[in-house]
Design a binder for these strands. Structure first.
Lengths: 188, 188
DNA sequence: TGCAGCATGTAATTTGTTACATGATTAA
DNA sequence: TTAATCATGTAACAAATTACATGCTGCA
């Protein structure tokens, strides 16, 4: 699944401009898909050329015209077909794990810092997902809740794993003592 | 971190040919990094050109000469530097979650099939990792064990999450009829 | 005064995937 | 006889990232 297809999918829920789609990538989709303007704008242009979306320009003062894209019938059909096509991939790419694999080449301070950073990143992810779940509310589509829940559980599992197994990588197994005074909340 | 750097890292443990490195990508690194011959061979050629590895050709009958690459001192320094450089990324890319987000556009049979397939993929991953952990034994480097454990825990968490939350996506919440009676507990 | 938000896009570069091309040996 | 394993590579293609390019508004 490429950025183009995902944009089409987002537009099947609600019309939007490129800027807004980017916001969605950064909120709901953050933990499993990312896209920058450099992918989104060309994708929308392509979709419009293919007749899968229609574009309506809204004039604004002091800003570029807002281009609001709306999915067409042809677009809906194309997207449903895209959903059924390929057996969907699910792939992690982790430099973090690669570095940990070679952690015997690093000094302990460095390893500890990387572990702490990663735990923090996971905890931030959990918080981020919790906040969007709150925003969504209970009447949110099932798919959105399922996907958010998945992200939260996996991030939590990652943080917990590191906390429980960091002793494998450091002689002292030092916990996060070196964190300055911005208190880090417990793993929840 | 690109394929080139990871190849260099692998060679810091043990000299190898491209074919062997590919095997390592498919065993130890499978759950967090992937690379095909199309990336590996050019990467090795580049490394040799830069003097980070040395190549020794071993003649064979009926096969192309085996090119065994060995890291140089310069290569070791470059790799250690690469390890320290960037704060390492850890990024999931999941078409599976994207499709689930839009699962209301699919019929239940299709959704159930996708969920079952994903659970199976996660379970296969756990098994695969367990088998390489067994192969490695207890005297394996700490980094290798840490990384393998991480993969197993995350895959298990993913499978458990789907099992416990599939009811969100399907009216009937049909479980896997093809699985024998082993009840799956809630998350964690 | 400076930064964040809104809003668009292009172009160069990097990176990796896929298909192509070859070919012997061995086990099922 | 068919597939898998060993073993190398190139070339075309696809895709996404990054840097560049513009510019107003409103807040601190």
């Amino acid at each position: 699944m490429d950025v183009k297809t995902l944009c089409l999918g987002m537009l099947s829920n609600k019309e939007a401009c490129g800027y807004e789609l980017k916001k969605t990538f950064e909120s709901l989709f953050k933990h499993f898909f990312s896209a920058g303007y450099g992918s989104i704008y060309p994708a929308l242009a392509d979709l419009a050329t293919s007749g899968l979306v229609e574009c309506r320009e809204i004039q604004q003062t002091g800003k570029p015209d807002r281009k609001v894209y709306k999915i067409t019938d042809k677009g809906r059909i194309a997207f449903e077909k895209a959903l059924q096509n390929n057996e969907p991939r699910h792939k992690l790419r982790s430099d973090f794990l690669a570095v940990m694999y070679f952690s015997d080449l690093l000094d302990e301070g460095c390893v500890n810092r990387l572990l702490n950073d990663r735990i923090e990143a996971f905890e931030d992810a959990v918080e981020h997902i919790n906040s969007i779940e709150t925003e969504m509310g209970l009447n949110a589509p099932a798919g959105a809740r399922f996907v958010a829940g998945f992200g939260a559980v996996i991030a939590k599992a990652g943080a917990d794993y590191i906390e429980s197994n960091r002793h494998l990588l450091t002689e002292t197994g030092s916990a996060r003592i070196d964190e300055p005074a911005h208190s880090v909340q417990g793993t929840t």
